[in-house]
Structure formats: structure tokens, C-alpha cells
């Protein structure tokens, strides 16, 4: 599998480390429901069929965290962007 790193170009998936769901974001620790929100953030993940946005780290490359859009059914990689620049929505 090859991932199109926005900085490095298309690279073998072995160069990357996988983290998972990029649609979750760290909750506000000061919010009154912080404990529930953090529980959800730490443990609960959807397992969608089809397109999914995931964090991948280009560990053996530019050391950038990417948001990779991948079809979980076909493994097709539909795109990748730098996580730093992307607008990640919950």
C-alpha cells in the first residue's frame, strides 16, 4: 500500500505509523462533562464501512502527522493532507 505524503510524495505504507480515527478531537478539559467526553475520546471509536479519515505519522520520512482518507472496504487511499493544516471536525 502506498500513501501520498503531501511533503514526500507517494511512499510505502511501511514508512508510516498508524494511529486511527482523525475525526475525533481532544475535548475541552475544563468543560463540566470533561470526564465523559475524555472517556469517549480515549476509548470509543466508530468503525465505518467505506471512506474514513485516519491519522498516519510519516515516521520514516518527513515526521509529519497526516490525515489520510482511506476506504476501509477497498483500502483505496483517496488522499492525504498534513494534519497541522487540516480542518478536523468532530
Amino acid at each position: 500500500m502506498r500513501i501520498p505524503c503531501p511533503y514526500c510524495g507517494a511512499r510505502d505504507a511501511h514508512e508510516f505509523a498508524y494511529l486511527g480515527d482523525a475525526t475525533v478531537s481532544r475535548p475541552d478539559p475544563a468543560a463540566p462533562d470533561a470526564e465523559d467526553a475524555f472517556f469517549t475520546y480515549a476509548y470509543l471509536r466508530d468503525n465505518p464501512d467505506g471512506e474514513h479519515r485516519e491519522y498516519w505519522y510519516h515516521a520514516n520520512g518527513c515526521r509529519q502527522w497526516l490525515v489520510v482518507t482511506r476506504n476501509t472496504r477497498t483500502h483505496e487511499i483517496l488522499g492525504a493532507s498534513l494534519a497541522r493544516a487540516s480542518e478536523v471536525t468532530a
Binding site: L19, Y55, A59, R63, Q64, W65, L82, A83, R84, V88
Partner: peptide
């Protein structure tokens, strides 16, 4: 060593850019 560097990069690039 490697894991922590990756973690710090995550914090800087994703959590608190």
C-alpha cells in the same frame, strides 16, 4: 525514544498547532 518523539510531534502538530 522513538515513540515519545512521535507523541510529542502529535501533540505539536495535531493537538496544539
Amino acid at each position: 525514544a522513538g515513540k515519545m518523539f512521535q507523541h510529542l510531534e502529535f501533540c505539536l502538530q495535531v493537538l496544539w498547532p
